[in-house]
């Protein structure tokens, strides 16, 4: 049986600049949380865009390789089609609809669902993030960074995805809020069976909450493995976890 998501040797570039991704492969199994780690410019965001079909919007293109969703080749599908196949995204910089209310933001996410399922889905999200329920009528642009991140995750969840892509989840957020959001994500996986592919800057956070991780360096996969394997890996310790790790 095919994995939920299989990225098979993807290479991608923006215009005439060099390869931003160089034959990257990874798999995400249903119901698991997978992290992508790496320094700035390692190709993490490009990988997310390649999967969600957004590369073209940013002047890039997939040069070779495929992305398979349940064995179906979706490499050249339009972004809206990929969303309807069950891949939703909470992008870097949140990108909530600032002028729309919280409720409307979620409703846009749920719009790809059949009408009858939308209400139930939104209730589930409000249950998961009670903060969003409190702010239901407020314009999204007026909320704090952490709340906007919850909303971005909520909007992606509203589409009832099988796979959720989250770019730079913890960027600029207080540790307590990051912890809260990751705990919610654990609940999401447990209740809906959604798989999550998350771009994370902090290796420590990633290894604590994720099942597997891939480390990108210069557009290539430098390391990969389960959280346990990576935690005890020498190179991982030196480069990403810092000297203090383990003490």
């Amino acid at each position: 049986m095919a994995s939920l998501l299989e990225v098979d040797g993807i290479s991608a570039s923006y215009g005439r600049m060099g390869l931003a991704l160089d034959r990257v492969s990874l798999t995400v199994e249903a119901g698991s949380i997978v992290a992508i780690l790496g320094a700035n410019g390692a190709g993490k965001t490009t990988l997310i865009r390649a999967i969600s079909g957004l590369l073209r919007l940013h002047g890039g293109a997939v040069a070779s390789g495929r992305t398979l969703l349940d064995g179906q080749d979706v490499t050249r599908f339009s972004p809206d089609r990929i969303v309807r196949l069950g891949v939703a995204q909470a992008p870097e910089g949140r990108m909530v609809f600032k002028t729309l209310s919280v409720e409307d933001n979620l409703a846009v996410g749920a719009a790809s669902l059949p009408r009858a399922r939308r209400g139930e889905r939104m209730d589930a999200i409000y249950h998961l993030f009670p903060r969003l329920a409190e702010r239901r009528g407020q314009a999204a642009g007026l909320m704090s960074g952490g709340e906007q991140q919850m909303l971005a995750v909520g909007r992606a969840l509203a589409a009832a995805p099988r796979l959720m892509l989250i770019d730079e989840l913890s960027l600029g957020l207080a540790p307590l809020i990051v912890k809260a959001i990751y705990e919610r994500l654990g609940e999401v996986v447990a209740t809906f069976g959604t798989a999550i592919l998350v771009v994370e800057q902090s290796a420590r956070i990633a290894l604590r909450y994720c099942d597997r991780a891939y480390v990108l360096e210069g557009g290539r996969v430098a390391l990969s493995g389960t959280a346990g394997e990576l935690s005890s890996d020498e190179r991982m310790r030196d480069l990403y976890l810092g000297a203090a790790a383990g003490h």
Binding site: L54, P91, F97, V108
Partner: peptide, 12 residues
């Protein structure tokens, strides 16, 4: 509101 955000959210 935002072409990019809407594309990401699956809006045509």
């Amino acid at each position: 509101d935002s072409h990019e955000a809407a594309t990401i959210a699956g809006v045509k």
